[in-house]
C-alpha cells in the first residue's frame, strides 16, 4: 500500500485517502473544435503507460481535496518526487 506525501497537507498519508487520476500533463486542447477525431481520441484515451517512471495525478479525496502530481516507478512503486499542479517533474526518464 502506497504511502503518499500530500504537498498541500505536507504530510505522508495512507493511499486510502487518495484517488489516482492517471497520467499527468495531458493538457486539454485549447481549441477542441479544431481537433480532428483522431486528435480528440488521443487526448481522451491514449496513454504512455510506461514500465518505469510515470508522472501521474493524484487527488487527496479524503483530505484536502487538492490535486497534485507525482513521479512513480511503475515497476518498483517507488515514489520519486511530488510536485504541484502546474509544476514540471525533476525526475524524468531521459534524465535517468
Amino acid at each position: 500500500m502506497l504511502h503518499i506525501y500530500c504537498p498541500h497537507c505536507r504530510e505522508l498519508r495512507e493511499e486510502e485517502e487518495f484517488h489516482a487520476k492517471g497520467q499527468a500533463h495531458i493538457a486539454r486542447p485549447l481549441d477542441p473544435d479544431a481537433c480532428t477525431d483522431k486528435e480528440w481520441g488521443e487526448y481522451l484515451f491514449f496513454r504512455k503507460n510506461p514500465r518505469g517512471l510515470h508522472h501521474e495525478i493524484w487527488y487527496h479525496t479524503a483530505g484536502c481535496r487538492k490535486f497534485f502530481n507525482l513521479t512513480r516507478d511503475t515497476q518498483t512503486y517507488e515514489i520519486k518526487e511530488i510536485y504541484k499542479i502546474g509544476e514540471q517533474p525533476e525526475v524524468t526518464a531521459d534524465k535517468g
Binding site: 484517488h19 487520476k21 493538457a27 486539454r28 495525478i57 487527488y59 481535496r65 487538492k66 490535486f67 499542479i85
Partner: peptide, 14 residues
C-alpha cells in the same frame, strides 16, 4: 461530480 469540478478547476482552469 464534486471531484470532476475540482479536477477541471485545479488542473485545467486554475
Amino acid at each position: 461530480v464534486l471531484e470532476w469540478l475540482e479536477f477541471y478547476h485545479q488542473t485545467e482552469w486554475p
